[in-house]
């Protein structure tokens, strides 16, 4: 399999959010606005790439029995770096994302990639895999948050699109997030069945 494919598979074919249905907690919680979605996506991508690289580097030294705790420590280190950077450079975003930044540690996508991919593949492949998954996650977040921000506040990135559109507040609320992801998953299933 070519190196390019390692990257592109995370975008659509194995999209972590819509196909693998992993890491939903941050996806739903922070997708109120596109800005938040992008911020969360970048933070998660950073953690994914970093942890994939390190895990791939040390994969031959870690004893099999305690590999999961080792991965968690590696991931938590990168999450802490991301958390501190965010606090330093973008306090507003940090406040908006709240407890969901430290919770990247327990995001199943990150641990899942370390366990399923990075511990079996070399550096370059793991890097591309991490990048692809991260970008795929960011794309999904942007899609969901764009839908929610448009419907719930009538805006995209703070710009009003249609004059006179009455925002549907519910999409800015938790139940709206659940509704959007449920309907999107249903829609994708429907399209998949059509093609098959």
């Amino acid at each position: 399999m070519g190196l390019i494919k390692e990257f592109t598979k995370g975008l659509i074919r194995e999209n972590p959010t819509f196909v693998l249905v992993l890491g939903l907690c941050p996806t739903l919680a922070v997708s109120v606005s596109v800005t938040n979605g992008i911020g969360m996506g970048i933070a998660a991508t950073f953690v994914l790439i970093g942890s994939s690289l390190i895990v791939s580097l040390v994969r031959d030294f870690i004893p099999d029995k305690i590999r999961i705790p080792c991965y968690i420590v590696i991931i938590a280190t990168f999450v802490t770096i991301a958390e501190l950077c965010m606090k330093a450079f973008s306090p507003a975003l940090d406040r908006a994302l709240g407890i969901y930044v430290p919770l990247i540690v327990v995001n199943c996508i990150v641990l899942g990639r370390a366990e399923a991919y990075a511990c079996k593949n070399n550096l370059a492949r793991s890097f591309l895999d991490g990048l692809g998954m991260g970008v795929g996650f960011t794309l999904a977040l942007v899609l969901i948050s764009a839908i929610r921000e448009f419907l719930g506040a009538g805006q995209i990135l703070g710009h009003t699109l249609i004059k006179g559109f009455e925002p549907i507040f519910v999409f800015g609320m938790p139940s709206g997030a659940l509704l959007v992801i449920g309907l999107l998953l249903g829609l994708f299933n429907f399209l998949k069945d059509r093609k098959a």
Binding site: M173, L178, I181, G182, L185, G186, N189, F190, D193
Partner: peptide, 22 residues
């Protein structure tokens, strides 16, 4: 409906429960 089996419907139900808890 086939497209809504399992995950999608679970999310829709969770959304309605969340609405009622409001």
């Amino acid at each position: 409906p086939k497209a809504f089996k399992d995950f999608p419907l679970a999310f829709v139900i969770a959304a309605i429960l969340s609405l009622s808890f409001m």
